[in-house]
Design a protein around this nucleic acid. Structure first.
Lengths: 253, 253
DNA sequence: TTTAACAAGTGTATAAAAAACACATAATGA
DNA sequence: TCATTATGTGTTTTTTATACACTTGTTAAA
């Protein structure tokens, strides 16, 4: 057994040396390394959602440059060298829509070889939620000629692989609303449980019993009672809740 | 309201035009775009785990080039332009360890500006599991001078940001073993529940009641009874199970 | 001022899932 | 045949989830 191991060691060493020499030779003449590694870039893409009157919507912008001129896409663009990923994703959101201070969550990577026709680009994907009534979305920017909210079941064919990214983004949104305070941006102050329930139902695409929703949402440990109540027109005053500052992760088993 | 909107539109258009002109001017003289976007690359990194006698271990390789010469790191390297991410991650595993046919799962992205001292690199991170007794790990490769299994609580300081990646990888492993068949590679054929339980306990770092483990693992819908039993030395024969081909995702609410 | 309309609040009974817990069984070797 | 070892299984209790109906506070109309 010892002899076999030593033999394998020697063979590996010889093979590695030969490989090494070859690569250096080829690399010198053909610039193999350049071909293999150069001209790569990183996209930071965010699917920004809102909920209006029980309809889940996503923010799209319209390209005014090639490639995909005239196509709607999710907000995003190329990462700069001097910024971290999150920073870059937020900068792109500001540039393309004017939206500031949005909290976003990374959820996936999209890296098919041909996803960009220009050069090799790998996309780091984020989701975020914002109240469309609280922001003024830019109509015209450096690289986009429009921006608008689309109900998620009425999204047109998008540029790049953004339809694929959007499908995953929506699944991620459904996961995140039960394990994070991502919806805080829709309710920066306090809110009643019936209000919150409508948003959950819109995003999850289902109806829930009011009493059971209360129990479930409270057991998730994401929100807390403020002790206040808010009065509405002609209705019973609703208890006010808020999202918690710190939330705890659940154990897996 | 109409007038306000029109006004905003005009202001935005003017600002955009000015911005556009400036960027083109600066870009022409200072090569801003090159500085901003060029020399980016993508790392594909995999934390490969195994479990031996109740100890969870991770496979590390030793660098024999700068940067981080002499440091242990996770397996991985730079993505090529002509390969998809998964493909690249697997190629790197073969090159650095000789391990083929490993199933790996993407789980995160690590992109701090200074994570590589050479150029801007964003790492796409994967986890995989393999039976260390079934593979012969290479001792010497083109870029590594050794490879070895380290118990996860005895991992040395690693090159790059790989300690950080490893911590997240381990969390992801704990999630994946209850929602995927990632452990199939440890049991390519059939296995008994006591065998499987030992692996779960090693990875999750806890002890479970045998009877409750049976109920829980079967309710996860990841494995199925083969109808066979296997005989061991001097013990009651154990029922044999196998991992399922297809598994179903759970709903979130 | 009484009453109707509206949307809010709450509790309980039943079913399902999780947790705690103990004894029986098959093989081997002394 | 008996002791040892590790396997397999079932029941009770607790917790959680589900299904389901009546009461309350506010406003506006009678």
């Amino acid at each position: 057994m010892f002899i076999v191991n030593e033999f394998i060691k020697v063979v590996n060493f010889i093979l590695t040396s030969v490989y090494n020499t070859l690569i250096i030779e080829i690399g010198g003449r053909m610039n193999v390394k350049d071909k293999l590694y150069k001209n790569q870039g990183i996209h930071v893409i965010t699917a920004i959602f809102t909920v209006e009157q029980g309809i889940t919507k996503v923010l799209l912008v319209k390209r005014k440059n090639e490639p995909f001129l005239g196509d709607w896409i999710l907000t995003g663009g190329a990462l700069y060298n001097n910024e971290d990923l999150l920073e870059g994703a937020k900068r792109e959101i500001v540039e393309k829509t004017g939206i500031k201070d949005i909290e976003i969550y990374q959820f996936g990577v999209f890296g098919k070889v041909d996803r960009s026709p220009v050069m090799r680009m790998v996309a780091i994907a984020y989701i975020g939620v914002i109240d469309s009534r609280r922001v003024q979305v830019l109509r015209e920017t450096l690289r986009t000629s429009n921006a608008d909210w689309f109900p998620i079941d009425k999204v047109p064919p998008l540029g790049y692989d953004h339809n694929e990214i959007l499908i995953e983004a929506l699944k991620e949104l459904q996961k995140k609303i039960v394990s994070s305070t991502i919806l805080k941006s829709l309710f920066p102050g306090t809110f009643s449980l019936p209000e919150l329930q409508k948003v959950y139902e819109a995003i999850l695409g289902l109806k829930m019993d009011r009493r059971n929703f209360r129990k479930k949402i409270l057991s998730l440990d994401l929100i807390e009672d403020t002790g206040e109540t808010a009065k509405f027109e002609g209705k019973k005053p609703a208890k006010q809740y808020r999202f918690k500052k710190k939330i705890v992760e659940k154990k897996v088993f």
